[in-house]
Write a protein that binds this DNA or RNA. Structure first.
Lengths: 219, 219
DNA sequence: CTTCATTTGTGAAACTGTTCACAGTGTGAA
DNA sequence: TTCACACTGTGAACAGTTTCACAAATGAAG
């Protein structure tokens, strides 16, 4: 039986929170804490104890009553689950303002390796930024195959994003993180995560403004 | 009756999609299209016709059978709802790599006005970046009050984010867009949107890798 | 050894968001 | 003017997620 039943599909929200827990647990461990209760982790994550327990239950991790969860074990568990990221090499496409900021942001954070960057502009290629070599887009397929890259990060203008995505898919990438303000069409089964900055700001503006109105109307 | 019943709380997901529809509709209008069907908009948004119709129903907008939705009307409707953003001034805190990229990204996109930026480092203050003046953090309260800023964007290192959030709240901001990899604690009623780049990449890496495994196990 | 306080694990309820399916309707064609 | 079609609007089913509430387990204290 090579198929562990634990390996069922974990919902995206849960994966997101696990990523957060990992960071928090790393900090706690660095501070010398050994054990943690669901309510403590919940406070750090700005969540609820129930939610934390449910998430840990989802990944099949157990604590013990009265003692809580052993941080080192829990951390190992979560890292084993997610951060094959360690084994996952990533490619960045688009070395503009945003691309460079992304590179800087992820540089030297543990579980990520940017194995290559790509840009159309010749003056950007050939250099090494934050430990990541920049190639011309024409070499994308070749480099992605050679470096065993499974994830692509798109940080190009909206108009070029779909084309880049197509190239990435063709090159064999299995997941895409897209910063361009367009929805990407990809073959079924491929995973795409959109980070839509415009949408994010619109949401904040909407709710912030709504509050102002409620305040006004309650005079 | 000053309270329009339409003004009920619209769920965050819907607001997000409306933001997307707005962009798509703007493009369509620029191309000279006048009318659009739910299934067309759905294809552009990589969504479903049902979802589109439900969203427009949520904001109380009606089309007509066989004709679809009139783009100009729909756009006006959505903009009237969301993009009080036009009236909402925004402040950026943290003018590092990410902060500058954010500024560049939003600069000259219609419904956003970055009225001020703040940074601790003296060598960054006093300049004007992408049409946005940079002040020292000590002047935050004053500038935010003067410029009627209601939204703050946080792009500082994790360790400083909570402190900055507290200052923003104190200065009277009503919504926060947070790029720092920490969960912020704010008074109830204030809106916070987190853009967690680490989490986003973890999600992609997880699902991308899972795919690889499924492929392998199905030999 | 027993009791008590505390925390986990989890079935079930409640809630939220999405999709279905079809009645109703305006439109263009004849 | 009538007809048939292709669309919208929406109640209701469905799916997914979060929260509740409580039994079971554990360690500490007496």
């Amino acid at each position: 039986m090579s198929n562990k039943p634990t390996a069922a599909a974990i919902p995206g929200n849960t994966i997101g929170r696990l990523s957060l827990y990992r960071r928090l647990l790393q900090e706690l461990l660095a501070q010398g804490t050994r054990q943690v209760y669901s309510h403590q982790l919940a406070r750090l994550a700005v969540s609820t104890p129930s939610q934390v327990r449910r998430d840990l239950m989802t990944i099949g991790f157990s604590g013990s009553p009265r003692r809580g969860y052993t941080i080192s074990e829990l951390l190992a568990n979560i890292e084993g689950l997610l951060a094959r990221s360690i084994e996952t090499s990533v490619a960045l496409v688009g070395v503009g303002n945003l691309g460079r900021a992304i590179l800087a942001y992820y540089a030297n954070r543990q579980p990520v390796r940017f194995a290559a960057a790509f840009d159309r502009a010749p003056e950007k290629t050939g250099r090494i930024l934050h430990g990541c070599r920049c190639y011309p887009v024409s070499e994308m397929a070749e480099v992605i195959a050679r470096e065993q890259i499974h994830v692509g990060v798109i940080a190009v203008p909206a108009a070029e994003a779909q084309g880049v995505a197509d190239q990435l898919v063709l090159a064999g990438v299995r997941g895409i993180l897209n910063f361009a303000p367009v929805r990407l069409h990809v073959p079924a089964g491929l995973y795409v995560e959109h980070v839509d900055l415009m949408m994010a700001l619109d949401k904040v503006a909407y709710y912030a403004h709504q509050q102002v109105e409620q305040q006004d109307s309650s005079r």
